[in-house]
Amino acid sequence: MSGKEKIITVHLKLWRQKNRSTKGFFEEHTLEGVSTGSSFLEMLDQLNEKLIREDKAPFAFDHDCREGICGMCSLMINGQAHGPERATTTCQLHMRSFSDQDTIVIEPWRSSAFPVLKDCMVDRTSFDKVIAAGGFTSVNVGNAQDANALPISKENADLAMDAAACIGCGACVASCPNASAMLFTSAKISQLALLPQGKVEAHKRASKMVEAMDELGFGNCSNHAECEASCPKDINLSNIARTNREFFKAKIFSEKE
């Protein structure tokens, strides 16, 4: 720990909701003795220990790997998805981003496609459904091919990898003024559309995934770019442009009615 570490007090305004069907409300807590060296989730752990000691229900929030790769943590922190830092998940956010006596408002992702399960935990099954709608990729079976048989340019490999960096956390939906899931869906479409293995069904996949996205009740993209700005993995808007192209081609050149 660095010598610059300080101990601060924060005032928390948390969204509490018992379950899917009950109405939620904001609850205020003051938490003392928070180290600026602790992560945001460690601060919430500290709060929960305090709540448990006081015989109160702990605050429910999603988290898992706590190293920014699993996509489980969420939280709208002072109106920004994953907090104020760029390209950072909530678990990578540290209390040094806040000052003593700050009020921190913590809300769940707000989208009709992400119902609240409890407090700030939301059900992101909708994203799994979008992925499932994408279907399969055609793979040659039999002996392993020669590694050089499928030429893939470095540029495309990089773009596909960048798109595949999406951890499916839902920050794009949460921060979008329209609650649109275009950045997520487009990243999942792009990571396959850019590579030869995924090219075979690229159009069909774009069509099916966009269809699923629309049916799940996400909003319409109007190119605000808040998604890109809030994305902890810096997923680029060019993925959305690619999806728009793929979708149009899929619809226009479809042989089926």
Binding site: G79, R110, S111
Partner: peptide, 30 residues
């Protein structure tokens, strides 16, 4: 699309704040 977008977020945020790197005054007021 406006109506669908409103339906996509029935409960709004208490403290929504722009990142400053995305939406603009123009995009918000379309």
């Amino acid at each position: 699309t406006q109506l669908q977008n409103r339906a996509a977020r029935p409960i709004g945020y208490l403290a929504k704040k722009s990142t400053g790197r995305g939406e603009t005054f123009a995009s918000k007021t379309m």
